[in-house]
Design a protein around this nucleic acid. Structure first.
Lengths: 227, 227
DNA sequence: GGCATTTAATTAACTGGTTATTTAATTATC
DNA sequence: GATAATTAAATAACCAGTTAATTAAATGCC
């Protein structure tokens, strides 16, 4: 048996990349449910199926692990969404729609993400915010926000969009995309069935697009949209 | 000196109701910033200006204190919003607008609230949700949601509202109202100045109303709205 | 191509500080 | 003097981070 899946006990066996990734994934889940303070390193290690000391071997400490988790989520989002926002071949209306779909689909691909992000958004309002968080926001959040504001202005200029306040409108758009996912337990309680089922997600996706289109597009632009 | 503000050292002095309220207020703040796990009982006691043991005297334990905080926030919201939603003298369009204003203003009156609620919404998605939370949601969240859905249906029937999906639309509305407040640190980073200043809040309020009106009202109903 | 040596990956068990919770005494008020 | 409110100090869980040992692969050397 040459390479293949070897499952030894300890020492310098199987790909360390996989171990690292497993830890990160477990951390992502745990942090998203319980927050940094609530997450237990023991539990993260257990879920990742590794010894706790490895968390400290790969990521300096709990906060480092948290920073890595944040970074992963944000960089993934930024990469995908930016690819859309930087296109020059789309008129504002199309670009907005594609953006919404892309953002929505990214979140839907791992509903753990928006909770992690939201937690960070809420941490320390009014107080100083964690260095890890501001770095991530600076690197990934800001460019995104700026591009979206630019898109708003372009759409207004072209007559595709109503004369809205660009800044607040961006906030409302993101809120609409995200809110369903960060309040799933409430959804679950309110309406029977699993809010994370593919059918429900598809329904939500359509509703989000409809809501945002109606809110932003001018009647003229809207007519040229769905039919 | 009979009653008045006496500030003795210990024993059975001043109104216990005030002590209780002070603890609850401090807890509210602390929980909203740090979450249940992150909040420190020492800090809560310090902020309330009382001995830590009093937390346990009035509220059994940390979780009990948390439940009480949740209850207070939710019951306040429900009381105000329900008063609007149960009115029979308003057509759907007016009722929707008044609801949005009322919900927004309640939150704006204490930006600590939505963070507390959001934290709870995110806790344990997929897992079993805390008994305290489901009790509160059952008692206060559900009636609210149901009334809002009813309002949607009435508005669609009357021709005030577009033919939207009532359930998802309610979610989008709440998301739009709430999102600004639960992502204030992000707002702060993105745009200079204090996002919680009265002027900014007023701007946000106008933007929320505009966004929701455009998203939901039919062109005819919208014309009869702002002018 | 076999042996010694280094290096990377992993673990079980421990430590030390933090923090929720209790206890028992103390003070006021009726 | 009983009862309710309050405190200082003790206790007991808990949990992030460490340590020192162990294993496996990689590297060099003859």
């Amino acid at each position: 048996m040459p390479s293949a899946i070897k499952s030894g006990k300890s020492g310098s066996r199987g790909e360390p990349e996989k171990t690292r990734a497993a830890i990160l994934k477990a951390a992502l889940e745990e942090f998203s449910y319980e927050g940094v303070a609530g997450a237990r390193t023991d539990e993260i290690a257990r879920r990742a199926g590794v010894n706790k000391a490895l968390l400290y071997y790969y990521f300096k400490d709990k906060e480092g692990l948290y920073a890595a988790a944040l970074e992963q989520v944000f960089s993934g989002l930024r990469e995908r969404v930016m690819a859309v926002l930087e296109r020059t071949d789309l008129p504002p209306r199309e670009k907005l729609l594609l953006y919404v779909r892309t953002h929505f689909d990214y979140i839907a691909s791992a509903p753990v993400y928006p909770r992690l992000v939201q937690r960070e958004f809420m941490r320390s309002a009014g107080r100083a915010l964690s260095p890890a968080a501001s770095k991530v926001m600076e690197r990934h959040g800001k460019p995104l926000y700026n591009r979206l504001e630019k898109l708003m202005n372009e759409g207004i200029a072209s007559g595709d969009f109503r004369r809205v306040d660009p800044i607040h409108t961006v906030t409302s758009i993101i809120g609409t995309i995200v809110f369903y996912f960060i309040s799933m337990p409430a959804q679950q309680l309110m309406h029977a069935g699993d809010p994370s089922s593919p059918e429900r997600i598809a329904q939500r996706r359509a509703a989000v697009l409809d809501f945002i289109c109606a809110a932003i597009l001018t009647p003229a632009a809207r007519d040229a949209c769905k039919p």
